[in-house]
Design a protein around this nucleic acid. Sequence first.
DNA 1: CTAAATACCTGATGGC
DNA 2: TGCCATCAGGTATTTA
Length: 270
Amino acid sequence: MPELPEVETTCRGIAPYVIGETITALHIHQRQMRWPIPKQIDALKGATITDVSRRGKYIQLHTGNGEAIIHLGMSGSLRITEPKEPKRKHDHVEWLMSNGHALRLHDPRRFGCVLWHKAGTPAHPLLEKLGPEPLGNAFTADYLFDQTRKRKTAIKVFIMNSHIVVGVGNIYASESLFMAGIRPGRASGRITRNESERLVDAIRTVLAKSIKQGGTTLRDFVNSDGEPGYFKQQLLAYDRAGEPCTQCGGLIKQKVMGQRSTYYCSFCQS
DNA sequence: CTAAATACCTGATGGC
DNA sequence: TGCCATCAGGTATTTA
C-alpha cells in the first residue's frame, strides 16, 4: 500500500497533532505485527514527542528517550481520531495525546511494525543499511549508474530495492520506468549513463507529483484525516493493462516480475 | 557476494 | 449462497 508519497503524506498529516504533545496513554490491542511490538515501547508513556520524521517508508516519532519506528507495510494507515471514536477491527495501537486527540494505527494485513530505538544506542539495524532518499541530493545519475554496474537484476526489481534507493514501490517503479522510456525487464547492468539520468529524474518527478496530490489510493490508503490520495488519476502505466498508452495509443502490457505485477508500453519503452 | 524464492496476514474478487 | 484460487500498495530472511 503505502509507498514514499503516502508515508510522507501521513507524516505531514499527523505532525501538527502530535509534535509538542505528551503521550498520556498507549493502548496495544494487537502485539503481533511483522515483528512483535517490543515491551520497550512503554518508554513512550509520559514522553513528549519532539519531532516526526521519515526515513524511506519508516516513520519516526521522536522523544527524549528515543524514537518509535513505524512501518505501514502493505495495508497500514495512521489516523488522528477522537479517543471516544469506536475502535475498528484492525486498529492495533492507539496513542493518546495531551491535546485530547488520539493517533491510531490500523493495519488489516499486519505487515507493518512498531519498533523502538533507544536514544544513544547504535542505529537501528533496519534503518542502518538503507539507500539514499530519492528526493535528496545523494540520489544522482552517477550514483545509480555506478550501483547498476555488473548487476543482472531487472531494473524494475533493482529500483525497488531499499538498499539501493528507498521509497520506490510497485506503483512508482512502473510509473518511473514508463516516464523514463526504459523497459522494466532490462538488466540493470545494461542501463546506460544517459538512461540512468532519465530514470533518476523520472523517479524524483513522479514521487514529488504524487506527494502534491496526497499520494495514490488504489483501494484502501487514507491519510491522517481518513481521506484518500488523488494521484491515481495521473497514473500512466500502473493498473492500466489493456488500456491505450497516453504517448502512442498502443496497449499497456502487464507482466509479473519479482512476483509483482508490472506495467509498461512495449513501443515507448526500450 | 548476487539473485530468486519464501514468509508474514487479511480481505476483495471472480469462477464454478 | 458457499468454496476455492488468486491477487493486493512491502521487505526481511532464507535458499540456491
